[in-house]
């Protein structure tokens, strides 16, 4: 059995364990799923009337941004879950088993896709209630959700590394806020990026969070007619740009996270 097959096979065993834990302690799930609802409602009703989008409705503009922000925040769950795992006795068992050293992380990032699927579903339903509509084709909408999940999955590998570097699960949340807030606000998530001042505008244009938001907006058909074509390449090709970023993140952070796991488990 080669390394990758072992990592996937053992990772699925660990993912199965994580799913059993979700089912057994559903309270955790409840809180994870309430915050996206809150986000949709807060932005829709607090900012909804204050921000004007030329030729369209802000609520419709907003939803894709909230999707992007929420799945990125969802990745902190991976970091916290992993940091918590590392404190548990079962890790002692995993260390002495002839299992892939990547399995615990592969399993964690895989089972956390479930959270993202659920939170996307809940946000979409809440969005429909406040007036958001999918105006594109069904296939485009499916691709839209798929690309959000892909990016979320990739981002969870960054948080996996963070989770293995910090001493306790609480630190993950604090540490990740510092990165995630600027990343998700200096973007086209909540306001059109061309209204931002100079350097922030450039950052926003090349920020992958803008690309994933732009991709969702296009695929869900939420770009108002008459909106000028974006000038930056990433926003002209948001799907390709998002896919490149996703694979780049996995290619860089997966080996780093696995190496860190080895360092922590074998001294």
């Amino acid at each position: 059995m080669n390394g990758l097959r072992a990592a996937i096979g053992d990772g699925l065993v660990i993912a199965r364990r994580n799913v059993i834990k979700i089912v057994r302690v559903p309270e955790v799930l409840v809180f994870v799923l309430i915050s996206p609802i809150m986000f949709v409602l807060l932005f829709a009703y607090v900012f909804g009337s204050a921000i004007e989008i030329p030729g369209g409705s802000y609520r419709e503009f907003l939803i894709a941004g909230i999707f992007a922000q929420t799945v990125i925040f969802g990745a902190t769950f991976t970091g916290a879950g992993l940091a918590e795992d590392m404190q548990k006795g079962i890790i002692q068992r995993f260390k002495s088993l002839p299992m892939s050293r990547a399995a615990v992380i592969v399993g964690r990032t895989a089972s956390d896709v479930i959270y993202n699927v659920l939170s996307l579903a809940i946000m979409a339903l809440t969005g429909l209630l406040v007036g958001w509509r999918i105006r594109g084709s069904f296939l485009d909408a499916v691709i839209g959700f798929a690309i959000l999940l892909l990016f979320a999955y990739a981002f969870s590998w960054i948080m996996a590394l963070v989770g293995l570097l910090v001493p306790s699960p609480e630190v993950v949340n604090n540490a990740s806020f510092i990165v995630i807030f600027p990343l998700t606000f200096i973007a086209n998530t909540f306001v059109p990026s061309d209204t931002l001042p100079g350097p922030l505008k450039t950052f926003a244009e090349w920020n992958p969070v803008s690309a994933i938001t732009q991709a969702s907006r296009e695929l869900f058909g939420n770009i108002p007619p008459g909106t000028p074509e974006p000038t930056a390449w990433p926003l002209q090709n948001p799907v390709v740009y998002t896919i490149i970023w996703s694979f780049l993140i996995i290619a860089v952070f997966a080996p780093l996270a696995v190496a860190q796991y080895r360092r922590v488990t074998q001294r």
Binding site: M1, I20, K21, R24, K88, G89, I90, P98
Partner: peptide, 27 residues
């Protein structure tokens, strides 16, 4: 096989699920 000072079991899983998982990880 190793049994350490602190019982290395997953508290949320049942006894059966713990052993079943270990068996799968031993392939």
């Amino acid at each position: 096989g190793l049994a350490g000072q602190n019982a290395a079991v997953d508290e949320t899983l049942t006894g059966f699920e713990n052993l079943d998982m270990i068996g799968r990880l031993y392939r």
